[in-house]
C-alpha cells in the first residue's frame, strides 16, 4: 500500500504544477486592478502607480511568475492585502474550520442518506421510497444559503433553540488551545466541556444546512446500489439458507453496495469543501471558502492562488484516500498506479 501511495503522489505532481500555472494566469486575467482597489477611493494615478510598484505588479508577467514560484518553493504563499496576514497562516487556521464543518455535514448527510437509501431500496415504491425521493429532491433544489437562512430564522430567530449565528464560538467564549484546529476535538482534549458545548451548538445548524444539500446524491446512489445487490444471486442464496433478514441486509447486501457509495462520498466531500462558501457566509463561519471569495472580490491575488493550490492538494489526497479505502471495503480491488 505504501508503494501505491508514493507512486500516486508522484503522479499528482504534474497536476499540481498545472494548478500553479493556471491559477497564476487566471488571477492575472481578472478584470480588476488590485492597485486601484488598494490605493483607496481618493487615489491619484501616481498613487496607484506607487502601489503597483510596491506590490511588484509593474513587472512583466514572467518575472512575476518566477517570483511567485520561488516564494512557493520556500513555502511562502504571499501576503493577503485585504486582511494583511500571510496567506499560509490564514489558510492553515481556516482550513480546520472548513474541514470540521464539512466532515460533520458529511456525517449528517451520510447517516441520513444511507439510512434513507437502504430503507427506500428495501421498501421499493412504498411511502418511504417516495419520502426519500422528495427529501432528496428538496435538498438538492433548495440553495444552501436559503436552507441556512430558513434554519436560522426558525431555530434561532423564532424558537431561540440555536445559538446566534456568530461563527465557531459564541462571542463570549474563547477558542480552546490549538492542537488539531478542530474546536470539537481541541476542547475535549483540554477537558473544557463548556467550550465543547458552545462549539457543538454553533456547528449544528451549518452542518445540517450543508448536509441537507448532500443527502440527495448519497441516498439515490445507496438506493440504486442496494436494489442491484438485493436482486443478485448471492442474496437469494443467503435468504435460501435461512439467514435472518438483518444479517442479509447489513452483513451481505450493504457491504457490497457500499463501494459506489464511498466513491460518491469522496466526491461529495471534495465538492462540499469548495461549495460551502455560501454556508460559511450565512453562518459567519471563518472557513477557506469565504476567505477565497472575499479575496476574489478584492482582486487579492495571493489568497486566491493559495486557495486553489490548497484545494488542488486536497483533491489529490482525497482521491488517494478513497482509492485506499476501496481496498479495505473490497479486497478484490487491486490498485495500479
Amino acid at each position: 500500500m505504501l508503494g501505491v501511495t508514493v507512486r500516486r503522489l508522484a503522479a499528482a505532481l504534474p497536476t499540481l504544477v498545472g494548478v500553479v500555472i493556471v491559477t497564476f494566469l487566471l488571477t492575472r486575467a481578472l478584470p480588476g486592478d488590485p492597485a486601484a482597489y488598494f490605493a483607496g477611493p481618493a487615489a491619484t494615478q501616481q498613487a496607484i502607480a506607487e502601489i503597483r510598484a510596491k506590490l511588484g505588479l509593474d513587472q512583466p508577467l514572467p518575472v512575476q511568475f518566477l517570483d511567485y514560484v520561488q516564494d512557493l518553493l520556500r513555502g511562502d504563499l504571499g501576503l493577503s492585502i485585504t486582511t494583511g496576514q500571510p496567506v499560509l497562516h490564514e489558510l492553515t487556521t481556516r482550513l480546520p474550520a472548513s474541514a470540521e464543518l464539512t466532515l460533520l455535514g458529511l456525517l449528517f448527510a451520510g447517516s441520513v442518506g444511507i439510512t434513507l437509501g437502504v430503507l427506500a431500496a428495501l421498501k421499493q415504491n412504498s411511502w418511504l421510497d417516495n419520502l426519500c425521493r422528495v427529501v432528496a429532491t428538496l435538498g438538492v433544489s433548495l440553495p444552501t444559503f436559503f436552507t441556512g437562512l430558513l434554519l436560522i430564522y426558525v431555530f434561532y430567530y423564532l424558537l431561540g433553540w440555536a445559538p446566534a449565528p456568530l461563527g465557531r464560538l459564541d462571542a463570549f467564549a474563547s477558542p480552546p488551545p490549538h492542537v488539531t484546529g478542530f474546536y470539537l476535538i481541541d476542547s475535549l482534549l483540554a477537558g473544557d466541556l463548556e467550550t465543547f458545548r458552545s462549539a457543538l451548538a454553533q456547528i449544528v445548524l451549518p452542518a445540517i444546512t450543508l448536509g441537507i444539500f448532500a443527502v440527495a446524491p448519497i441516498a439515490r446512489i445507496t438506493r440504486g446500489s442496494m436494489l442491484a445487490v438485493m436482486g443478485s444471486d448471492f442474496i437469494r442464496a443467503a435468504r435460501g439458507h435461512g439467514l435472518s433478514g438483518r444479517t442479509v441486509v447489513v452483513a451481505y447486501a450493504l457491504r457490497n453496495a457500499l463501494l459506489p457509495v464511498v466513491t460518491t462520498l469522496g466526491m461529495v466531500f471534495s465538492f462540499l469543501l469548495g461549495a460551502n462558501v455560501l454556508v460559511e457566509k450565512v453562518f459567519a463561519w471563518p472557513g477557506i471558502g469565504s476567505y477565497a471569495v472575499e479575496a476574489l472580490i478584492a482582486s487579492d491575488y495571493a489568497p486566491v492562488q493559495g486557495f486553489v493550490m490548497t484545494m488542488g492538494v486536497l483533491y489529490v489526497l482525497l482521491n488517494l484516500m478513497i482509492d485506499l479505502l476501496y481496498q479495505v471495503i473490497d479486497p478484490r480491488v487491486r490498485l495500479e498506479a
Partner: peptide, 21 residues
Amino acid sequence: VIWRIVPQSGNRRALLERGDA
C-alpha cells in the same frame, strides 16, 4: 468591545432583534 463580523445582513438584524448583539 467585541467586534464580530457577520457577513449576512439578515443575520445582523436577527442578532439585534434577539438582543444578542
